[in-house]
Design a protein around this nucleic acid. Structure first.
Lengths: 221, 221
DNA sequence: TCAAGGCCTTTTGTATACAAGAATGACAAT
DNA sequence: ATTGTCATTCTTGTATACAAAAGGCCTTGA
């Protein structure tokens, strides 16, 4: 197995991602290299490499000779991202419907059962985790490794927002029902129906989130 | 407008991309930092930043404490990438069919006309350029800026391979016919038909490329 | 008082210096 | 002869030093 050790800059990048996600750094904040260097007790070099990675994944924008700034997607961009996520996942499901293995199908059922348990226990974090697992199986069973990676990438980017919308009352239960529809379609080997189910499932997330946004900021521009 | 100046490391990243695409650096080659620094007459720092960017976009893999190595996608991964490209473009077309503006529709016709001229002139490079323009209009008219960016990103990654498959005899003419079908569907506002046309159009590219690959290496593993 | 220009500070971008890990080669022991 | 171990060396990862550019602030002139 090849070296699993990660560079300091990678750890820092992950840490910064977390700090952005949990709101420590808000949208528009400038990330000062020397401050961060002090905070992590390293020199500017690994900080810069970490920031470069974040810039590539779109979490920050890098304005030459000015600095890097946190860049949270606005409402419009978020809706766009959810739309793309929905389509990517729909493709995954369509492909998975015909390519899925028997074992993976049972895994899918298992994941869904765990989701149900989490719903009954009102365990939002648990539901979030098992839900991710459910979707990850679909990505994997698309039989397209590249598609799988792209799905995971976007899912990761949308993570904090997906999490938020789960807080909407009754959302978890509804989400479960949508899962059932997806599983049924996959089990029937009906690619188009699976795609539609998943697309709707993810689109709803985007809509819920949008609703949440507008209700939180009634007088925003 | 915000600063258009690019850092040296960005230029180097672009240059390295070119060197990888044109085969100067073959698959598996190690990219030595000091050699590259000498070649570009800079220090290791901007080289490292450039390599980091390439690693993020997947052109090279970075093995900690070992170095970075050129990583061209193998046949399997290429097919996977073309499949995803086809689906992304299909989504673009489906959305564009209902969202496209009148002006963009005429632009689409114009781009297609230019493609036709290039075909008649047997101008492969010209066709490639105008074809790109044609597709770019579709991305843009999806009305989803994020989707547009993702399409452009993947298109860029597949660029050298798309170019290759155009060399197949009669491919340009067939490609033109497929374009016509796409335009017709878009004009009719039929999203599903547009999506199917585009999906087929791009899938064919992948298949042609695959055929080209296997014919070039008849005894490969 | 306000505006314009220049200096100074602050911060990024690049170069170099240093440290630590990995590969390679030699040498010894079985 | 082969294998294992140690040391040397080469390369990457990190720290620091230096340069250049952007922004702020003060001064000065109208």
């Amino acid at each position: 197995m090849r070296s699993m050790e990660r560079k300091r800059s990678d750890c820092i990048a992950d840490a910064l991602e977390g700090l952005i996600f949990d709101g420590t750094f808000a949208d528009g904040d400038r990330l000062d290299e020397v401050q961060l260097a002090a905070r992590f007790s390293v020199s500017r070099t690994p900080i810069r490499e970490a920031l470069l990675r974040l810039a590539q994944s779109g979490l920050v924008t890098q304005i030459p000779r000015r600095g890097v700034f946190v860049r949270q997607p606005g409402p419009v961009e978020l809706i766009e991202m959810f739309e793309v996520m929905a389509e990517l996942e729909a493709v995954s499901a369509r492909l998975a419907a015909t390519r899925i293995s028997d074992k993976a199908l049972t895994d899918l059922h298992t994941a869904n059962d765990r989701c149900r348990l989490a719903v009954e226990a009102q365990d939002t974090d648990g539901y979030y985790r098992e839900n991710e697992q459910f979707h990850a199986i679909l990505y994997r069973q698309s039989g397209n490794g590249f598609l799988e990676q792209e799905c995971l990438r976007l899912q990761r980017r949308l993570q904090p927002f997906r999490r938020l919308q789960l807080r909407v009352r009754g959302r978890m239960k509804q989400s479960m029902l949508e899962h059932e529809a997806v599983v049924a379609a996959i089990e029937a080997g009906d690619g188009e129906r699976a795609a539609d189910s998943v697309r709707r499932h993810v689109s709803v997330q985007g809509e819920k989130f949008h609703h949440l946004l507008t209700s939180l900021r009634p007088a925003a521009e």
